[in-house]
Design a protein around this nucleic acid. Structure first.
Length: 597
RNA sequence: GGUCGGGUAGCUCAGCUGGAUAGAGCAACAGCCUUCUAAGCUGUGGGUCAAGGGUUCGAAUCCCUUCUCGAUCACCA
């Protein structure tokens, strides 16, 4: 039990004793005492006024009196209005700290055989263009969420569904056939996903020209879009693909292969990974079968033209198309198919889809459909819905070229990190290799933290002209504190200082130190809450606050120069543990921390 | 128009399961490096928490209305 839990029990029994009534735990509101008041924890007494039938101040004093007598951990108290500020005995904080020290996996739970299995789908790229900043947000959120769920003791399968078929893929393929002259990633030295993306853009350019020409001949815009020869060719190609045309399939496999190589590189650099990858080109068939199965069971209905629909009016929604009149699948069919494959392969307890908020409606429908089809986790599937990344000019649009490319952005961040290091004179004594590695860690740290610290629901703004900061509430700030602590610990070891594994319980802690322990002790709760709310931002904010408090301590107190050995030992242990928590906290965000920088 | 999500300092964001005088960072200004890493620390200024009403001892937080921004409501994926 931590201090807060012990205190909650004490408060309950004291109130029962004073006023002869059991109170619900929820009414015992303990919060950290605000800086401007004396004390560690504050009990809000307003909820007890009905029972005590006395004024707030009086009630608070009574409870405070009784608590100091009843609980050995409460040293003293003061009352301000309805707030009872409790000062916890300093030795309690040392004990708390020693307990934390003993816990090698502090705040992180391990999965057991019986742990629920969570499957998290994220990334979900199309194979016709490279990844951009929007995907970065998706990947970072998805990966971090997996880490957080693992830290909460769940079994987690990280999964990706690749949208590897469809008209958009045919557009790139066709443009490559027409204008490519046999270019390949190895012949051009270009990353495969970028090469394919270039042809997607070329298709669009050619398509627009054709539309323009047709319109000049007097064709309406709507008709021109349909009649444009290149579009008709793309559609013909899609038909061939569906029919299994050997030549088209071969080209498709080759070009997708290029893209996968490119994606793998980007994923690796971003530091994300998957346990299982699904491909739409195989799942859509299962989707069709599943829909037909549902049709036979009378869950869906067929219209006169042959198309298959789900009636969702009883759920307050519309009707939804599941199969076209020609029998081909739509987006929803594919997601049903993917779910089928997953369901057959894994014993899933919870399915989480990390997908942008533009698809809220889609997942609302998917949940109902999966539930109807008998997927146990369908009803409670989680759509981890996040907002768009916007540029100052507005939304990013691939076809208009207003996208921030993932690879470019990472390059820039790492480059900037290197420049910052150089300016600060940090890399003078480093090998090139080490300097590059630190630039990589810090550049990516800045990017990841920038994205993960904000509430996923919100749209966020990214201004490419103002580069992401390296000072203040940023990744490098946190990384720096870690590096600094590690440096102190290295110095201590060099000087032959031994600091043991436990803090001496006889030492007198300062307010700053006990506050640090108090804040440190809340890490497991933050991890738990982040898991319940699916919120990497909570972790980011916690680590930032911890680091800020530590920096202030670091500035005001000597560690190595402290003459009292017991206190010096404690400060070294405290620093060490905080470095560990920084590392595991940042680890939950998928951010590395360097030993020096 | 229906549904969903936003609106907090000049800018980017915390806080939202109701609690004390609404917090950080950036930007601006003023200090702190012969002492453990100054990517740091300390301070100053900056707010009608979109507006109005309600519930409550207490509202940025909950409820209602309005304004506003965005997403979505495809035989695109």
């Amino acid at each position: 039990m931590n201090v807060e839990e012990i205190l909650t029990q004490s408060v309950k029994s004291v109130i029962a004793q004073l006023y002869g009534q059991e109170v619900d735990e929820k009414l015992v509101q303990l919060q950290n005492t605000k800086k401007e008041f004396e004390g560690d924890l504050t009990l809000v007494v307003f909820p007890f006024l009905k029972i005590s039938k006395k004024k707030p101040e009086e009630t608070a004093s009574e409870i405070g009196d009784a608590l100091t007598k009843a609980s050995p951990i409460v040293e003293k108290f003061n009352v301000i209005k309805g707030f009872l500020n409790l000062t916890i005995a300093k030795n309690v904080w040392v004990d708390t700290f020693n307990t934390i020290l003993n816990d090698k996996e502090f705040g992180l739970k391990k999965a057991t055989e019986d742990s629920p299995l969570y499957m998290v789908e994220y990334s979900s790229p199309n194979t016709n263009k490279p990844l951009h900043l929007g995907h970065i947000r998706n990947n970072l959120l998805g990966y971090s969420l997996c880490r957080i769920l693992e830290a909460n003791g769940y079994k987690v399968i990280k999964t990706n569904i690749v949208n590897d078929r469809g008209i958009h893929i045919c557009k790139s393929m066709l443009a490559w056939q027409k204008f490519g002259n046999g270019e390949t990633p190895s012949s051009t030295g270009k990353k495969g996903d970028h090469l394919v993306g270039d042809y997607y853009v070329k298709f669009d350019k050619a398509y627009k020209e054709e539309i323009k020409e047709l319109m000049e001949k007097g064709v309406s815009e709507e008709d021109a879009k349909k009649q444009a020869p290149i579009m008709q060719e793309a559609q013909a190609m899609l038909k061939k693909w569906e029919d299994g045309d050997a030549e088209v399939r071969k080209l498709w496999e080759e070009m997708n292969g290029w893209v996968y190589e490119g994606f793998d590189e980007t994923y690796k650099r971003l530091g994300v990974a998957f346990d299982k990858i699904y491909y739409e080109s195989t799942t859509y068939i299962d989707g069709k079968n599943k829909v037909n199965e549902g049709l036979e069971k009378g869950l869906f209905y067929r219209r006169e033209d042959g198309s298959v629909w789900a009636d969702l009016t009883q759920n307050g929604l519309d009707e939804k198309l599941l199969l076209r009149a020609d029998g081909t699948s739509v987006y929803m069919t594919q997601d049903i198919g993917t779910a089928t494959q997953r369901f057959n392969e894994f014993d899933i307890n919870k399915m989480i889809y990390v997908v942008g908020n533009e698809q809220n409606y889609h997942f609302q429908v998917l949940s109902i459909l999966l539930d109807r089809l008998g997927f146990s986790w369908g009803k409670d599937l989680v759509h981890f819905s996040y907002g768009m990344v916007e540029l100052p000019e507005g939304k990013m649009k691939s076809r208009e070229g207003t996208v921030v490319d993932a690879d470019d952005l990472m390059d820039e961040m790492i480059q900037t990190a290197k420049e910052v290091s150089a300016e600060l004179g940090k890399i003078d004594e480093m090998t090139d290799e080490e300097a590059n590695e630190i630039a990589r860690i810090c550049g990516l740290g800045a990017l990841k933290y920038f994205i993960l610290k904000v509430d996923p629901r919100k749209n966020m703004l990214f201004n490419p002209k103002e580069s992401i900061d390296f000072n203040g509430n940023t990744g490098p700030f946190i990384q720096y504190t870690h590096a600094r602590i590690r440096s102190v610990l290295r110095k201590a070891a060099e000087q032959g200082i031994q600091w043991g594994e436990q803090a001496d319980t006889s030492i007198q802690l300062s307010e700053t130190e006990s506050n640090l322990i108090q804040y440190l002790s809340s890490f497991p709760n933050v991890v738990k809450q982040a898991g319940q709310e699916y919120s990497p931002a909570l972790i980011a904010n916690y680590v930032y606050e911890l680091v800020k408090q530590y920096n202030s301590f670091y500035h005001d107190f000597s560690i190595l120069k402290e003459s009292d050995e017991a206190i010096r030992g404690f400060r070294l242990l405290l620093s060490q543990k905080i470095a560990e928590v920084i590392k595991s906290g940042m680890g939950l965000l998928g951010i590395d921390v360097p030993e020096r920088m």
